[in-house]
Simulated scan of single mutants.
Amino acid sequence: MSEIITAAMIVIGDEILSGRTKDRNIGHLADVLTAIGIDLKEVRIVADEEAAIVEAVNAVRARYTYVFTTGGIGPTHDDITADSISAAFTVPCGYDDRAFAMLEAHYAARGMEFTEARRRMARMPQGATHIDNPISIAPGFVIGNVHVMAGVPAIFQAMLDNVVPTLKGGTKLLSGAVHCPHGEGTIGGPLGEIQKRHPDTIIGSYPKYQDGSFWTELVVRARDPEKLEAALAEVRAMVEGISAKA
């Protein structure tokens, strides 16, 4: 049987919800996970509020194989992700000795004071392990199936590169596309019937507008290449049949 590995993402930060910062991490994570056969099933965006973070983390970590969070592990007062993850796992949050030493040496080498604010970046839940940060040193961390990373896209991507080799990949989704010159109102009924006949596939329709005309891209996804091709054949036949009557 195909092994299905699933994931959820929690984006943490008032700046995302207010629109001051535009998220660039969701799409990157989705691309990376798809490439290694992990299905990103859910994304939540939550405020810098402990109760909201705890509720979201506990909800999704019980439901999916992996959870990835971004944001809220910096040096400011509203960077409360480490405390919130600790609360979700009901463990203490404190300074990690190795993270503290790394950051202390990093700032000393730059001739900068290792302030209380900067020390906050060395805090993580008891029992967590590091996610290395090759850009700005301050590590992310893993506890249980939850991977906690920075929100800055370049740092998030670098951390994720270090996480990927530790993940268990699943059977990858294969996909095929069919160009359809008809709108969803025309194809909706027969396309739904095709989906019913091919329950092991995922069939999506995506309206497009190009060069002054509307059309629909029909995408079929499946893990089994034979089931994928069978569904694609029906979709192509449906489009050809509708076109012939038009």
Rank of each mutant, 00 (worst) to 15 (best):
D132L: 13
Y95A: 11
P153Q: 08
E116P: 00
E116Q: 13
D96L: 01
S136L: 14
Q126Y: 05
A128E: 05
F141I: 04
T115V: 02
V148E: 11
I131K: 08
I155C: 10
T115A: 07
M149C: 10
M159N: 05
C93Y: 03
H130D: 10
I143N: 12
D97A: 15
I131L: 12
G140L: 09
M149D: 11
V142G: 02
A128S: 15
V152L: 13
I137T: 14
S136K: 13
R123H: 07
Q157R: 15
A150L: 06
R118H: 02
M124F: 04
M124S: 06
R123V: 02
V142W: 02
R98Q: 14
R119E: 12
I137C: 12
A109S: 14
D96W: 02
A99N: 07
E116H: 05
T129G: 09
A122I: 01
V148K: 10
F114Y: 03
A122F: 00
E116A: 15
A138C: 06
F100E: 08
G151I: 08
Q126T: 11
H147V: 07
M112I: 12
G94E: 15
Q126I: 03
R118K: 11
M112R: 10
V148R: 10
I131V: 14
D97R: 13
F114E: 03
M124Q: 10
P134A: 12
R119V: 03
I135N: 10
D96K: 03
M149S: 06
P125N: 11
D97P: 03
I131W: 06
Q157S: 13
A117W: 00
D132I: 05
H130T: 02
M124E: 06
A108T: 04
P134H: 03
P125D: 11
P125I: 09
M102E: 15
I135W: 05
L103F: 01
M159L: 11
I137F: 08
G140M: 13
H130L: 14
Y95D: 13
I131C: 07
Q157M: 15
E104M: 01
A105H: 04
P134K: 09
E104C: 01
E116S: 14
I135C: 10
